Amino acid sequence: MEYLVTMTTRVPDGTTEREVAEVRAREAAHSRELAARGRLLRLWRPPLEPGEWRSIGLFDDAGPDALERTLAAMPLRVWRTDVPTELARHPADPGPGGVPVAADSEEYLVTFAVDVPSGTRPESPAESKRVRDMAAEGYLIRLWTLSGGGRAIGLWQAPGAGRLREILRSLPMAGWRPVDTVPLTRHPSDPAQVT
C-alpha cells in the first residue's frame, strides 16, 4: 500500500547544532536504506515558514502497522510527528515509474474534490482520456484516490505554476473539481531518478 506522510520536525530548545547534524546524517543514511528496500519512494519539501521543518514522503508498506514501524525506526522520529494518508490506486494512474521525473520541471501535489451537479455522471470518458493524455505527455506522474469519496490526489510536473494551471483547466471536468495545489521542492534525500 502506498501512503503520503507529512513529517513535521520540532527540535527541542537547547539541542546543539552538532546533535542536529548527527541525527540528520543518520536520517539521510536510513532514508537511503528505505529507498533501497522500496519503502521510501519519494521525498519532498512543501513551502516552509522560517524555522519550520516539514517533509512529505511517499512510502510503500504492507499496511498501517508496518508503516508505523518504518516511520518509528527513522532517526528524526525522536523530534518528529507523522501524519500518514492512505492512497488507493486511481484507474488512470500511470503507475510507479510510468512517467519519468523531468529535471527541468517543478512538481506539485494536486488534490481534487469532485463536486458534480446531481444527475451528472461523476467520471466522464473525456475526463479519463484527458487524464491519460496528461500522463502520456509527461505532466501527470501519479494519481491516487483518497478515502471519503470523490477525492483524488495527483503528483504533477510542469515547467511552472502557470503552465500547471493551464493543464488543470484543460480537464473536461475542471469546473466541477475544486483543487488544492502544493508546490514541492525535491528533498536532498529524495530517491527519485531525474531525467
Rank of each mutant, 00 (worst) to 15 (best):
V11F: 10
I153W: 00
A35K: 01
G98Q: 07
E137G: 10
W176L: 09
T85L: 14
A36Y: 02
D93F: 00
E166M: 11
R132I: 08
A126I: 10
I167K: 01
F59I: 00
V83L: 15
G63F: 00
F112Y: 12
G138P: 07
S147T: 05
I153T: 13
Y139H: 15
Q157C: 01
E68I: 00
S118R: 15
M134F: 13
E127G: 11
F112K: 04
A161T: 14
W156M: 13
H30Q: 13
L67H: 04
V116K: 06
R42K: 10
A135P: 13
M134W: 09
R42M: 11
D61S: 14
F112E: 10
G150E: 09
T81F: 02
L41W: 06
Y139W: 12
R24E: 15
E127T: 13
R10V: 14
S128Q: 06
E123S: 15
G98W: 10
A126K: 11
W79L: 05
D82P: 00
A28P: 02
L155A: 08
V182K: 06
V20I: 15
D133C: 01
Q157F: 03
P12F: 01
R54W: 02
P50H: 08
S189C: 11
R177Y: 02
R165N: 11
R165H: 09
R151P: 03
G150L: 11
P191V: 07
A92H: 02
G51H: 10
E52I: 07
A126T: 09
R163D: 15
G14A: 03
E49T: 06
W176K: 03
I153H: 00
L184H: 08
P46G: 09
D82C: 04
S31N: 15
G175H: 04
P100A: 09
L184T: 06
E127C: 03
R177F: 05
E127H: 10
R132Q: 14
A136H: 02
